[in-house]
Design a protein around this nucleic acid. Structure first.
Lengths: 282, 282
DNA sequence: CGAAATGAGGAATATTATATTCCTTTGCGT
DNA sequence: ACGCAAAGGAATATAATATTCCTCATTTCG
């Protein structure tokens, strides 16, 4: 139990001097932490020895030990909303509140995304990627960044990846695919026109389509051979695509880590690519 | 931010005496809390004055203040993120285990990144960005994706942003900056040559440099006017830049959300840019 | 009712801890 | 090799803490 709570509870039963000291600490623990026993005595109008005796009565070896206890209580109280807060962030929120809600939203979409994809579906996707001749990644806007991030990881594993910012080039890439190839199509809404175009073309050519979309029915989902899902929480962290991007990253990170166990020699590839990059860093 | 993490991060860069003292504290913070400066000196085989100087080098008024910081760090460490496992992912882990560890690592680096940046520093960064004529974002590799993500968000807020994949163009952009401009330089190691080059140039031109790096001392940090920090956890989710990227995103998301409250008319800008994008989705 | 007992609480003091100064050493650049 | 700068310990000054001792008010019991 927090020492501050204890002080409050015992306030009644205390002697005069002790009560004054306790009250001061309850009112402004932060300030008390900056004071020496003598300074605290001066601030409360009692004597320095009373402060020390006060600390000892509470069961601490001395004032220092007591101060550590208050410090600890204060530290824990700071993050008292134990667990993660999750709610809409609005303009009146305090700094700490905003951070907690942001982390809460991110955590929630990561957890739900992890839960929304069965091990079987993930396995199917991994199998397709590992067996593919080439993997084409498709994403626009924020999803294009996730696609790129994933492409770096796949390259580290020695896979052949197609990805381009220019959607025209992407479309012509797609039309050159065969049934030995895989398309990973990222679109949280499942309605991005460019991505749909690419998926349609690739499907006509016989390639396997892995869709990464939200849960709601959507055109991209309808085209997919293997469908993975991202769960976002858009209306909480308002006005931005933060959580859907986090969900996509969660999913692609999962795929990457699980691929590490499947791709023969994965660790060697990674070693090499890291050495290559290190050369550029001093 | 946890002082214990800071100690760990800076251990390498410390002098002999300091390193010994730091190591002792890292190994057994509880014990350290029971010791006086002289006792800690005896326990580590250094002098009492070294202990005090050590505390002061870290930015505390003295040993007592430092002790309070360690006490606080220890108290907060106790927070068990209920249900979240955090550990090294290895090949023998089960599917569910891997997911839990992945989420745990991500959550940890988000939390620690949130904690590592004081409200004051964040405020300083926000002020610089809001007041800037132009904002140049710099990042290579995985950081370039974060930079791009952040640039989309800043554009939504109607800010003028410079960002290009080609480092030559970035460098010429940097040399055209003035002291009315701001550079946000992203590099977890703080040692990417291109980014250093850009930051140096921009600094010569008088622009304000905001660095986003890890905690360990690094060249980019030394150049920065305002320094923000990312905490990653590389050795847990092995062989990838997953958590450092997450930490960077956490930080840029924080900045974005806090900017929403600062930039006049932010919500209008966002409304408009979302309407514009919706047109492309069906 | 009054004297002894008790305990709160402050003043003074002893003890201990902390911060500063000063000096030696060592390593590094010229 | 020389001088300089930084590290770090010894000594010292300063400050904080703990203890002792004393006074005074209240309570208890003869």
């Amino acid at each position: 139990m927090s020492i501050l709570k204890i002080l409050g509870a015992q306030l009644e039963a205390m002697t005069q001097a002790d009560r004054q000291i306790a009250q001061f600490i309850i009112d402004d623990p932060e300030r008390m932490l900056a004071l020496s026993s003598a300074a605290l005595a001066a601030a409360t109008g009692r004597s320095q020895s009373s402060v020390v005796k006060f600390s000892q009565k509470l069961g601490y070896a001395g004032y220092q030990q007591f101060k550590l206890a208050v410090n600890k209580a204060k530290a824990l109280e700071w993050q008292a909303p134990a667990g993660v807060i999750h709610g809409t962030i609005d303009a009146s929120d305090s700094y700490v509140n905003i951070l907690q809600k942001l982390i809460g939203s991110k955590l929630l979409s990561m957890r739900e995304t992890a839960a929304a994809n069965s091990e079987d579906m993930i396995d199917a996707a991994l199998g397709a990627i590992v067996g593919a001749r080439k993997t084409l990644l498709a994403g626009v806007g924020a999803s294009s960044l996730v696609a790129k991030d994933f492409s770096y990881k796949l390259l580290k594993l020695g896979r052949t990846v197609l990805l381009d910012n220019d959607s025209h080039i992407q479309i012509s890439n797609a039309s050159a695919l065969t049934k030995a190839d895989v398309v990973v199509a990222l679109s949280h809404s499942g309605r991005s026109l460019e991505i749909l175009r690419i998926a349609e073309l690739a499907k006509k050519r016989g390639a396997t389509i892995i869709s990464i979309t939200g849960l709601q029915p959507n055109p991209l989902l309808a085209l997919a051979d293997i469908s993975l899902h991202t769960i976002a929480d858009e209306d909480r962290v308002r006005s931005s695509a933060i959580t859907s991007r986090d969900a996509q990253l969660m999913l692609t990170d999962m795929l990457f880590i699980l691929l590490l166990r499947r791709v023969p020699g994965a660790h060697d590839f990674i070693q090499h690519s890291e050495t290559a990059v290190t050369v550029l860093k001093m």
